[in-house]
Every structure is written in C-alpha cells, then in structure tokens.
C-alpha cells in the first residue's frame, strides 16, 4: 500500500516534470521566436484618425440656447450610441439639458444676468484631467486615455457604481435594467449595453478614430467647438482666449475639459 503510493507519486512527479520540461525545450521556444514580429497585435491609430494630446470642448451657450438645437444634439448622440429612452429616475443619458443653477452649482450670485440664468446648458461628461471616477474604479473599467478622453470598458465594469458616487457632475448612468427594449432603432455600428453596467459620454472616441468629429459637435451648427486644448493655435484655445468661459465645479480640482462660453 505504502509502496504503491510512493511509486504513484514518483511517476506523477516525473511525468509532471517531463511535461513542464518539454515546454521549455528549445524547439518550442525557437518556434515562437521565428514567428514574424509583424503578426503580433499592436495598437496603432488609424490613418484617418484625429489625434490630440488633450481633447477638449468649448460650448458657446449664447448661441446654443434653443429647443431645436438641444433636440438635434441630444438625439444625434443618443440615437447613434443606442442610449435607451427610459423615463424614470433610473434613466440613462449621455448629453442633456439643464438650468443654470443645476449646471453651475457654485455660482450662487444673487442677481445673475437674466439672459444667463434663463439660458439652458448642455451637460455631458467633462473628461476631466484628474477624474475622480477613474481614481475610484476598482477594476480600471473606466480609464483616461493618452488623448485625455475618459473611456469605459462595459465588459469589465462590475456595476459597483463607485464611479457614480465619485463623479461630482452626475455624468454617469447605470443600466438598472436591460436597456435594449428601450432602444427604438438599434445602430449596429455601436455596441448596445447590458443591464448592470455604467455608461457615459465617450467624446465619440470611436468616431475620432476614423477621422470624424463628435456627433454633438456636428449637430450643433457650429456652437460646439472641439479640439486639442494643449495646442495654443487650436480653435478651442482661440475661443478660450477671446471669451469668458466657466467650467463646472472647478474648485474640486478635477479639471474639466468642457468649457462654457457665457
């Protein structure tokens, strides 16, 4: 009994060593080395891609404020990105319309200019330079790309919603239910999401990759400018130099990349 167990262990150990050793034999490693380097997958930007070091957005709220433009921008974004139309407090939204005090909660001016306080403002993810959502995410399902875009991996997200607590701008939505029945016309060019994950505006990173501007920019009739904030000659930087702008909650130090011309 004892003897046979010992023999069994011996044989098992030897065969394990044999298996492990064969993996390390020169023949198998030589095979890997001869594989052409080009075949290994590498991430490269497409030839048509728009590139920047820090994507940012400047919204001319003076010109933006009418119902048609809001409807055009919101539906362009939501239709393309398969954002479900759920009418409850468990709604999902990427870009939406809000009043002055909801938008700029720190502007507690008693006698604000009438035109400013009566205006509506488009809200979306600020793609912060120092994003709290990225800092708190336990799985790196949300992350900041080298071009400044704060992106989401819907397949890695565990739905803990820490990012929603972390985001001071209420930019994130959670799929409390399966969103697909609430998408009227599914756009097969962009993935739908499943229940239990968080989503938000992507700055249309998927379109920038093929050389197209974000949908809200295209639908905005020139009232939203989009460009490289790190480039002093970019259109966005020129607009910032010429106009008075506000960012939402700048004192929190998240450094939003979305500017509002007031």
């Amino acid at each position: 009994m004892k003897n046979s167990r010992r023999r069994f262990l011996k044989i098992a150990g030897l065969s394990f060593l044999g298996l492990a050793g064969s993996r390390m034999l020169p023949s198998s490693s030589a095979e890997a080395a001869t594989a052409p380097a080009e075949e290994r997958p590498v991430y490269r930007n497409g030839e048509r891609a728009f590139n920047a070091r820090h994507w940012g957005m400047v919204i001319n709220t003076r010109a933006f404020d009418n119902a048609e433009i809001f409807a055009a921008v919101i539906s362009a974004c939501h239709k393309y990105h398969n954002v479900p139309d759920i009418a409850s407090k468990q709604e999902v939204k990427w870009i939406w319309k809000a009043g002055y005090h909801e938008t700029f909660t720190d502007q507690l001016d008693n006698y604000p200019a009438k035109s400013v306080v009566e205006r509506h403002y488009p809200l979306l993810c600020n793609h912060c330079v120092n994003p709290a959502c990225v800092r708190v995410c336990p799985t790196q399902a949300t992350f900041r790309r080298s071009d400044g875009i704060v992106a989401m991996d819907y397949h890695r997200c565990i739905g803990c919603r820490y990012c929603m607590a972390g985001c001071p701008f209420g930019a994130r939505s959670f799929n409390f239910r399966d969103p697909r029945p609430f998408v009227a016309d599914v756009n097969s060019a962009f993935p739908t999401r499943m229940r239990g994950v968080v989503e938000k505006c992507t700055f249309c990173s998927e379109l920038l990759a093929v050389g197209e501007m974000p949908l809200c920019v295209k639908a905005s009739n020139g009232t939203i400018a989009f460009g490289d904030l790190s480039d002093p000659n970019s259109k966005v930087r020129k607009l910032l130099a010429e106009n008075f702008t506000l960012r939402r909650k700048p004192t929190l130090g998240t450094e939003p990349s979305v500017y509002y011309i007031i």
């Binding site: 800092r135 708190v136 995410c137 336990p138 799985t139 790196q140 399902a141 890695r156 997200c157 565990i158 739905g159 803990c160 919603r161 820490y162 959670f174 799929n175 229940r195 239990g196 994950v197 968080v198």
Partner: peptide, 19 residues
C-alpha cells in the same frame, strides 16, 4: 449591490491600488 456580480473577480484580476 453589484450590477454584474459574476464579474466580481475582476477586482482581483485587475488589481487597482488607487481604488
């Protein structure tokens, strides 16, 4: 509380010390 509890091991598979 998790939306995708079957992915809970992602916390270990992708350890994120800043979280």
């Amino acid at each position: 509380d998790m939306g995708q509890p079957q992915r809970v091991l992602n916390v270990i598979l992708h350890p994120t010390p800043n979280s």
